[in-house]
């Protein structure tokens, strides 16, 4: 564990707490993509099934349980308690265009030919594009609540911090995980456009608005 990864994980944790706070404070899931949240549940369940078969550390196990349970809880909030505030008509990204290619990539690129390993690869590829329905929705509506942009920024920072973590691990431990690194770089790149608007507008005290 190095500081890049630790702060990356903390940023991921913070992003989920910000998301739960947003839903609680505004009593609404407006501006959130149900499809992205459902993809995160898929990602976490597919990857962290190994919580039953592998033990890395107490930290690792607790985080896995937290990510699975909090993502499921968010889905419940969106489809249960706050359903009336969810607007599926603007959440129109076609997720099958993500699921199919990711499944295919996992069948081609994996470290071992076993069910859990192919599922692990699938989750890595899917995580890299899971934010697309949310970003697509943002693009469509052209604006976002400030708190929602903080959520996205924390989520993007988590992925960005994993990149120096991999460089550090390559240098200090001589290990490299080409599947995670490739997908991680793609995932971080998807946030660049968002980060530009976040830094130039939201952090200057303005509302998140995209040019018409």
């Amino acid at each position: 564990m190095n500081l890049f990864r630790f702060f990356g994980d903390m940023s991921h944790l913070a992003s989920i707490l910000i998301l739960l706070y947003k839903i609680h404070a505004t009593r609404s899931v407006r501006g959130l993509s149900f499809k992205t949240q459902a993809l995160y549940v898929t990602v976490f369940v597919a990857r962290y099934l190994d919580v039953f078969t592998e033990f890395v550390s107490v930290y690792n196990t607790l985080m896995k349980i937290f990510f699975i349970s909090s993502s499921c809880f968010v889905l419940y909030l969106m489809k249960g308690r706050y359903r009336p505030t969810n607007d599926p008509s603007i959440d129109t990204f076609r997720v099958e265009y993500l699921l199919g290619p990711c499944a295919l990539l996992a069948l081609i690129f994996h470290y071992r030919w076993s069910f859990l390993e192919v599922l692990w690869s699938f989750s890595i590829f899917l995580e890299s594009v899971a934010i697309l329905p949310q970003l697509f929705m943002l693009q469509r509506t052209g604006e976002a609540e400030t708190i929602t942009t903080h959520y996205l920024a924390a989520l993007g920072a988590y992925r960005a911090l994993y990149i120096p973590n991999w460089i550090y691990r390559y240098w200090s431990e001589d290990v490299i995980d080409p599947i995670a690194v490739t997908a991680g770089i793609v995932q971080t790149a998807l946030y660049l456009d968002f980060f530009y608007v976040y830094f130039t507008k939201v952090l200057q005290g303005q509302k998140f608005e995209l040019p018409a």
Binding site: D9, D50, V56, M63, Y111, E117, I176, A180
Partner: peptide, 10 residues
Amino acid sequence: LGWDVWHDEL
């Protein structure tokens, strides 16, 4: 170079 399966990250 460690190409071993290494799933200690989240």
